[in-house]
Design a protein around this nucleic acid. Structure first.
Lengths: 182, 182
DNA sequence: ACCTGAACACCGTTCAAGT
DNA sequence: ACCTGAACACCGTTCAAGT
């Protein structure tokens, strides 16, 4: 985890990991079937922490449309604070999920935080009564897109650009899903 | 290009490329300074084709909010039709851009198609008079997010899920940016 | 100018062998 | 059960040498 955070995924080799742990490169095969199983473990840990972060934000805000907006901010913050970890979680997800079936469950659990929030917002009549799954996918895609563009350097070298984009996006997003009868 | 399309980026090795071209692995160093310079070339070609696709869609639709929605559909279609190519274009963009400065120009040119479309929509009073750059980043992030989630297998194995998400997203998006005085 | 073959410093993975 | 060292089949890259 430390190697990934400090030097990126491509720097995580079994040899280097073994050396850091003071153990032979091949010793890791006792604990993981291969390298992608190890990476799947890293991804799982990421989704679990992710879930906690989002849940905490929703609770602290006391739910509501404000809670949803704060979850969006927390989402992008998580990605920008842990870019390499985030890349392991999302890049080549299906390959890793094939190695470790529980990865998909952890990803689903993080996604469920968003779906549950939307259910609450629908119950209170704050947002449109539309298929929750698709609504969640749409919101997820938006914050994921911002996170990815920022991480990959497509928003330029200035992190302020990404930071300014998030509140704008959450406000536009709100206008697109808010209940229209008020 | 063929190797990337048929077998993915990770299958593109200089050795395999040399063999396919009937030439030594090291011969490629006469034409590219190293492997990432070659990948930067692949990414540049992608952005150029991307730009053409988006431009054609905008023109065929005769502009307007409908043209914008069709650009969104074309965007995701491009990504899903060329997943490996798309990954080269966006994954690790800054590393590749450092190797080939013209890559950034090609990416900007593709992005400019969106910015120009927004300018036209602002001139006609169809959408809000907001900073075009940020507006474009927001829209780009949304379609990019859908494309990435779909490519990475996070939307499940059924491509119909991603296809259904696009029109829903473009409609929500429209509601968030449409001029409000009508 | 363009290409080659050998060499170098890396990988992940396997496997017989040790404690 | 857990680890080791040697070996195998790969990488990208460099470099002296050829035409």
């Amino acid at each position: 985890m430390r190697t990934i955070r400090e030097e990126g995924v491509q720097a995580l080799t079994l040899r280097a990991a073994g050396k850091r742990l003071g153990v032979s490169r091949t010793a890791l095969y006792r604990h993981f079937t291969d390298k992608s199983a190890l990476l799947a473990g890293v991804a799982r840990e990421g989704f679990q922490r992710f879930r906690q972060d989002l849940l905490a934000e929703w609770r602290d805000a006391g739910g509501g449309l404000d809670g949803l907006a704060r979850m969006g901010v927390a989402y992008v913050r998580f990605a920008l604070s842990n870019p390499s970890h985030y890349r392991v979680m999302f890049g080549g997800f299906s390959d890793l999920a094939a190695k470790d079936p529980e990865l998909e469950a952890d990803a689903d659990a993080a996604f469920a935080v968003l779906v549950d929030a939307l259910e609450s917002l629908q119950a209170s009549g704050d947002i449109i009564q539309h298929d929750r799954e698709q609504l969640a996918q749409y919101i997820w895609a938006t914050v994921h897109g911002i996170a990815m563009l920022a991480i990959d350097g497509q928003l330029g070298p200035d992190p302020a650009v990404a930071e300014a984009l998030v509140p704008f996006a959450t406000e536009r997003l709100r206008l697109g899903i808010v209940a229209r009868d008020a």
